[in-house]
């Protein structure tokens, strides 16, 4: 791209340096974080400068002709500039931001990092969120009355947690005369599963249907099977609100499906290739099993996930794969 070869302008370099600077000066921000006016920086844009020059020319003209009306027009435009500065700044200051739970993606896919923004003012400012690594570099967001969600796409290349420790909020609205920005030191995370390999290894005999024909009830999606205690990560859609009303206890509806086969996927059973390839293969196996509505478990050395099926189970298994032997990241997930 020719634009990347071109030397960056001074303001651009200034803006690009600001995350580093902010990180040095400030502790990570609370969640949710109310953008402090003291951390909003503002500089005039190119149009802002041109506008200022035009107003200055008008001022000289008014002085030369000693024309009161021309003075008035000049000062009206000056005031427009000042108000634009104030409004641009107020788009960001006192804005509330909090990261959202981001849906996990497979390595190689684009991660979607989402932030919820809201503002106490009723009129909705326009802001952009950005990060140097984000694709398309910035996402445009018009903040609605009830808050809105801004999202950045980011390329993933390896499993584990994709994490950025800050992001930038910026705005030129209204008037495009000033550029205001702030660095929010909130981590944005997205779990990245291993990339599923193209073909599943034969070793677990996934193609055979004959091993077991006895049906067993396993948690699934289709048929209501009973209630169990609410656990974290249960979908709110499955919470039994009706029984909650009578029992004062959050229960979750369980569903069952007819499952024909149980497999236990063990990483040690895969001999070929390095760790990443084996994890990819396991990933593919899990996906296939889920698709065929089989029961499956996972064994990664000490970590054993009992056979089951369903979305939650799949997520648990894939998360285990994603974070396997990555010590640098905790397994907490994105905490809210």
């Amino acid at each position: 791209m020719p634009s990347s070869i071109k030397k960056k302008s001074l303001p651009r370099r200034l803006i690009d340096r600001s995350p580093k600077w902010a990180r040095k000066r400030h502790a990570p921000d609370k969640i949710p974080y109310k953008v402090s006016g003291r951390r909003v920086y503002i500089i005039p844009t190119r149009f802002g400068l041109i506008f200022a020059i035009a107003v200055f020319a008008l001022l000289l003209g008014s002085m030369n002709y000693s024309n009161g009306l021309a003075f008035l027009l000049t000062f009206i435009l000056t005031a427009v500039g000042f108000v634009a500065m104030h409004l641009t700044n107020s788009n960001l200051s006192n804005l509330y931001v909090e990261p959202m739970l981001n849906e996990a993606v497979f390595s190689g896919e684009n991660a979607l990092l989402q932030i919820r923004l809201w503002h106490q003012d009723t009129d909705r400012p326009e802001v952009e969120i950005s990060h140097q690594l984000a694709l398309a570099n910035k996402a445009h967001c018009c903040i609605e009355e009830n808050g809105s969600v801004a999202s950045m796409h980011m390329q993933t290349s390896q499993r584990g947690y994709l994490e950025i420790d800050h992001y930038m909020l910026s705005t030129r609205f209204p008037m495009n005369m000033f550029y205001a920005w702030t660095i929010v030191l909130q981590p944005l995370r997205c779990l990245v599963y291993p990339k599923p390999s193209d073909e599943a290894p034969e070793i677990f005999g996934n193609s055979s249907q004959s091993e077991s024909n006895k049906s067993s009830n396993r948690p699934g999606q289709d048929d209501f099977a009973g209630l169990r205690d609410y656990q974290w990560q249960d979908s709110p859609q499955h919470i039994a609100w009706k029984s909650y009303a009578s029992q004062d206890k959050l229960l979750v509806k369980q569903f069952s499906e007819s499952v024909s086969k149980t497999s236990m996927f063990d990483i040690d059973a895969l001999s070929s290739g390095n760790l990443e390839i084996r994890l990819s293969q396991l990933c593919r196996l899990i996906l296939n099993a889920e698709e065929n509505q089989q029961n499956y478990g996972l064994k990664l050395n000490d970590t054993i996930i009992e056979p089951s099926n369903g979305d939650t189970h799949k997520h648990n298994c894939l998360s285990a794969l994603a974070t396997y032997q990555l010590e640098s990241f905790s397994k907490r997930g994105t905490d809210i």
């Binding site: 008035l72 000062f75 000042f82 634009a84 409004l87």
Partner: peptide, 11 residues
């Protein structure tokens, strides 16, 4: 807003 803030300022 431009009108409300801007007018007194320009005056």
């Amino acid at each position: 807003l431009f009108f409300i803030y801007g007018l007194p300022l320009s005056i």
